[in-house]
Amino acid sequence: MPSTRPNQLFRNLNAKIASIPMILTAVVVFLGGTVWTVVYSFTDSKLLPRMRWVGLDQYERLWNTSRWLISIENLLIFGILVLIFSLVIGFVLAALLDQKIRFEDTFRTIFLYPFALSFIVTGLVWQWLLNPDFGVQSVIRSLGFENFNFDPLYNADIVIYGILIAALWQGTGLVMVLMLAGLRGIDEDIWKAARVDGIPMWKTYLFIVIPMMRPIFITTLVIITTGIVKVYDLVVAQTGGGPGIASEVPAKYVYDMMFLSQNLGQGFAASTIMLLTVMIVVIPWAYLEFGGKGKRHG
């Protein structure tokens, strides 16, 4: 209390005043907002939030909704493929750029520029490129391959791969930059030692360099995963969730339930599941990164 211990509260007062926005954001928006959403996911809120407790009803309904199940399935397929491909492509590109090549800056600039573009722009460009009448399919057919079929945006079975192509185009540059930073952090002596021992280059990468870059790989994995769970704008722009509901994703389910279908309770339950998904990845990582004494190589 100010009257009893004025020194304690008013010491460093300017720093405390300057930190008010941070404290408000952390406590009210991040902590308070999250708790609020989780609590209200146990209510039957419709158009407006209301405190009528229904237990796990919203979750039960959620997991019985085919649109949500498709969203989760899409997220799983999309997520696993994005992880694998972006890590592999990102690492290979970084390794190629790390060969003391000419025009390194030019190549890096080209591989990274899509990352500066928004998901909306990315989605719209690839919507156009994958247009079956004018895009890649028609061009390859006109080259003489009459039976060539590739229309992911109009074929429910493969639509998620069309989104995957766009997402990889946009995001692999980032993975490449992170991997390149990791490769540059590897001691030159390692390479010299491997060469003296006559270890072929690919083996050096696979068995020496990549294990050394574990911290960078884990950090990149966390970044990609949190990005995947949030994927929304790309789908809205490229397919709008279609054809039908074939390319729906959880983030879009949340938005549509909250702001289009006046079904707040469903939106809260779905977003709580999204939160859980991210926690499953982030908590072990935070534990590894900040709990242990692991050294960073990046």
């Binding site: 720093a15 930190s19 952390a26 928006v29 999250t34 999204m274 982030v282």
Partner: peptide, 28 residues
């Protein structure tokens, strides 16, 4: 100019960066 409790708020802030935006959309 670190003060008591500053790091706690900062930790919440950083953890908050990983929370999907969808969770905080409606409270905002």
């Amino acid at each position: 100019w670190r003060f008591k409790g500053a790091n706690l708020f900062f930790t919440i802030l950083i953890v908050g960066a990983f929370i999907p935006y969808q969770v905080m959309l409606y409270p905002i």
